[in-house]
Design a protein around this nucleic acid. Structure first.
Lengths: 411, 411
DNA sequence: ACCGGTTTGTGTTCCTCTCTTGCAAATGCC
DNA sequence: GGCATTTGCAAGAGAGGAACACAAACCGGT
């Protein structure tokens, strides 16, 4: 129903492609499955599954193992699993306080993960790119020689134009209209595309696929750091918007006569729930970074009134903002990431009560607000998930003629 | 990419179904097309198009006409068009001030349209259903005897649970948890399903398909009446949310310490931009209905300060609310419907300026805010569009064996 | 402990569905 | 009349479905 763009005609090859895609996607998302489970999941016949899996096995993307006996009657069905080294991606992240890189294999296996602290403040594109390239080299050096990721993806704390890999606005880095994707592609010198996306959008994807929002088709991921970012999943698909700028929930006006925001607007949500709001209300200096937040949490745990009051206020404004978003989006699950995940125990009561008041009853009843399960790595893992999309979408393009995994040129 | 639910396996029939659907959908959305244009649009071969169109012609859903000569060289291509009487739907609307019914033919041809004023205030379900049935009978009486709509859809100013046709909350009608769909189906006594949806969601669909948002894949429709409703299109698909309650933008908190809202919350957007806010600020009584609004607009046209100030305030709050929505959704187009369409000339400047301040630069640049082109009929026409979906989705199910248009039982 | 019956699943062959390819004919502008 | 475009038709290729035989494990009775 309601296809987005021009529906192009289908042909026999389309069917095969869609079916291969369905199998690989199931394996990627749910882990190893027996052939008969694949039959049940896809609705295809044994013959078809057999042929399709055979093709994937020949292409060394998946492997079949001896049947596991699980107490069920009948002939055991061979287990089909993605081979973790069959296809890997390189995921990068530029966060406020750290840089990270990961090599992730098909099925979501994290082969390598490196995260290093990063001083806050403005750094040049060159510096950041150089650091990332070094990290990537380190991670890749521990992998089999000659291993080539099928794609590279970067999560960055910024407003990003996905189509061209341009960082539009990154106040924490001091970047405006910076060609991150192109520069990184050049510096990495890998013969594969480099994609760039917002860290909150990718955090949403990761929590949706492998975290706290698994199984929910409508998801809102709210990422608190210095600013507040959001990632939205609608009916299983990321909400990107026309320019890929969707999900900038931190700049939703909730208090139009309130404080001015670094985006130039006034009363944005992040001026009430961001790191700065918490620190200011708790009586700390703004430039304390993570240590200051740690201090606030320690104070709160110790029962100090200033910290508790600050957290209470953040909890209230969290509830107010989420109420609006719940009314607009009617999600099944809201996942709190970053700062919000850390303060969750201290704010949950106030937040829930506020949500009860400000949200409509019907959508409120259906939503659950939970902290992130992937923690700081959510955006990084989301980048990996995004990087796998082309493979999941068209596995045949990655199956070499004689079983070698090669990348075919595609439009 | 990113399929929402379990991707079911595809088979040959799936291909045919998808291709038939693509053809019918193109014809429905773009109007008559030559066979060769269909070839270009779908990417299928002439032979395939020939066979598919032939099947549709045999089923009397489409007709082929003599080629039009348009000065192009080559053999002229026959024009394929949906026959307007081939499949029709019955669309109904329960608005604040009126009831309406339409009989719409494939391709969006409005055969009949009746709208009658309705007194404001609480009416029982029985009364409303009886009125609608009467209106429907009137409209259908002017149509060929024996004509049977393929589906019925109702737009209603309420929070609706689409899945079961339940009206959850309709403050203007005084309804809570009312089984509108079931009762209407019973009273109409037509052997076809009756669907119920929110009038703003359907207005969005209509403006997206045939109105001011045509060609834009990411759309926000904002409907002002007593309350404020919204309809959201994301990448060409309606944003329903998990319970179908999505798009309730009227209850987004924009002024959490402001007035209390009839939904039970405080500072909802509609308390600042709804009809009540406008009337109150302009110094009129709240129960004036449409006449009072007319008076405010007349006053404004005459330059009376109170009316101008009230409109200015509404314009400002419109800009504030839209800024949040633009940041969250990054739409290509925002369509103002209902009350907002009427006051648009008076508020556009203030609204645009406010939007400039409160919205992020990147998404702001890409969006255009325009008044509705379908006016009061947008929700009604949206209901028709929704009612046509099953046909567009699977035309074969509506092609009888010998060319008669019959509805097949489907899961 | 043994031994068929039952259940579940595989392998293989042939069939059907659907679109593509290739060639010849038709049509209308220049 | 030449050329470009499109149609119509018949043969061909790709892909999954259906049916049958067989294999492997569980289950219960003896």
């Amino acid at each position: 129903m309601y296809p987005g763009r021009e529906e192009v005609g289908q042909r026999s090859e389309t069917v095969r492609r869609a079916n291969l895609s369905a199998i690989v996607r199931e394996l990627h998302l749910r882990g190893p499955l027996s052939r008969s489970e694949l039959v049940a999941r896809t609705g295809l016949t044994r013959s078809a599954i057999r042929a399709l899996v055979g093709e994937l096995v020949a292409g060394e993307l998946v492997a079949e193992e001896a049947a596991v006996r699980l107490g069920t009657p009948g002939r055991p069905s061979p287990l089909v699993r993605l081979v973790p080294d069959g296809a890997v991606v390189l995921a990068l992240e530029i966060a406020i306080d750290s840089l990270a890189v990961a090599v992730v294999g098909a099925g979501g296996v994290v082969h390598e993960l490196e995260r290093v602290d990063r001083p806050r403040g403005h750094l040049s594109l060159d510096e950041v790119v150089a650091d990332l390239v070094e990290l990537a080299a380190l991670a890749r050096s521990r992998r089999p020689a000659g291993e080539m990721p099928i794609r590279v993806a970067v999560a960055v704390a910024a407003i990003v134009s996905r189509a061209d890999g341009l960082v539009r606005f990154a106040p924490n880095l001091g970047w405006v209209d910076v060609p991150l994707g192109a520069r990184l592609a050049e510096a990495l010198a890998l013969p594969v595309p480099v994609e760039v996306d917002n860290e909150s959008d990718l955090g949403a994807l990761a929590e949706f696929r492998r975290g706290a929002a698994r199984g929910a088709d409508d998801v809102l991921y709210v990422h608190g750091e210095v600013g507040v970012g959001g990632g939205i999943i609608v009916d299983g698909r990321p909400l990107d918007g026309i320019g890929g700028y969707g999900g900038e929930i931190g700049h939703m006006p909730v208090n139009p006569d309130g404080r001015s925001c670094r985006c130039g607007s006034t009363g944005c949500w992040e001026t009430e729930v961001g790191e700065g709001a918490l620190l200011t209300r708790a009586g700390y200096a703004l430039d304390g970074g993570r240590e200051a937040i740690d201090q606030v949490l320690a104070d709160a745990a110790a029962g100090r009134p200033a910290a508790l009051a600050a957290l209470d206020s953040v909890g209230r404004w969290l509830g107010i903002g989420l109420a609006g978003l719940v009314n607009i989006l009617n999600p099944r699950r809201v996942v709190l990431g970053g700062l919000f995940s850390r303060i969750h125990p201290f704010v949950v009561d106030r937040m829930d009560l506020t949500l009860d008041h400000y949200a409509l009853a019907a959508p409120r009843r259906l939503v659950s607000v939970v902290p992130s399960t992937l923690g700081v790595d959510a955006p990084l893992l989301g980048a990996a998930e995004m990087a796998f999309e082309p493979l999941l979408d068209d596995p045949a393009a990655w199956l070499g003629p004689r079983g070698a995994l090669v990348q075919l040129e595609s439009a």
